[in-house]
């Protein structure tokens, strides 16, 4: 389908004029009359309502998507992280700085504090684990695990939402073979719709928002599921709830 004459005159790069001319031409030529309304969505789109049991919906959806969810009280989160690292034989970890590991800064904070980064770092070091916090290639391509926070989660789909920002490396949840995400239960939104509505509410989106729903996977070879293609083979979610 491609035009065989590969090189002709170079089109002007980043040209507003060319774009405007194109839009004008499109306007003149389009045979379509504007008659289809842009529908309002929420009522029809929503699969999970605010009254649903968000935690169990999330756990079910995330588990079926291949995420491993660990429900813990807030004080047990570090111990569980340590266990997971031990089980996976992880010796070096990257910990996201600035991570909203707990409830603070979250959209509807219900006060689950989550571990302090300093405390997490200290306890892991005590367990003989090398902790790194820089986002260099050397670190991200060499560590056994990446530990990050989560901006929101979605009960409907079991999705974790991770945003870019100061101290929030995109590679942290992507490059190491094991991803451990710390999620406060208060951050679970009912429906994908809620997540997108919240995300678009601000004046400008972060440069990168990732909706993570499962480990990295493929079924390209004879339809057989294999995890850990380019991203993490395993994703563990430490789901922290108040003891009450």
């Amino acid at each position: 389908m491609s035009n065989p004459d590969a090189l002709g005159p170079m089109p002007e790069v980043n040209s507003e004029k060319r774009l405007t001319a194109f839009f004008d031409g499109l306007r003149r030529r389009s045979a379509l009359k504007p008659r289809t309304e842009l529908p309002t969505l929420e009522a029809d789109v929503r699969q999970v309502g605010a009254n649903a049991d968000l935690i169990s919906r999330f756990v079910a959806a995330a588990t079926s998507a291949g995420l491993k969810v660990h429900r813990v009280g807030e004080s047990d989160s570090i111990a569980r992280v340590r266990e997971i690292l031990a089980e996976c034989g992880a010796k070096t970890v990257y910990i996201e700085q600035n991570a909203c590991l707990g409830g603070s800064g979250a959209p509807n904070d219900c006060g689950v504090a989550g571990p302090e980064i300093e405390q997490l770092t200290a306890e892991l070091a005590l367990a003989g684990i090398t902790v790194k916090s820089d986002t260099s290639d050397e670190t991200l391509f060499s560590v056994d695990a990446g530990i990050t926070g989560v901006t929101y989660a979605v009960a409907e789909t079991g999705t974790l939402v991770c945003q870019s920002g100061p101290g929030l490396a995109r590679g942290g949840s992507l490059i190491p073979p094991l991803h451990i995400a710390l999620l406060s239960a208060a951050k679970i939104l009912p429906d994908l719709y809620d997540c997108l509505a919240l995300t678009s509410a601000g004046s400008q989106l972060p440069a990168n928002v990732n909706l993570i729903t499962g480990p990295s996977k493929t079924a390209d070879i004879e339809g057989i599921l294999v995890t850990g293609v380019h991203g993490p083979r395993e994703v563990h979610v430490i789901l922290m709830q108040n003891a009450a």
């Binding site: 998507a65 789909t157 995300t199 990168n208 909706l211 499962g214």
Partner: peptide
């Protein structure tokens, strides 16, 4: 699948 593993929303550099 209900959702693919990764949905990236990219807004500029």
């Amino acid at each position: 699948q209900p959702m693919g593993s990764y949905t990236s929303l990219i807004s500029g550099p």
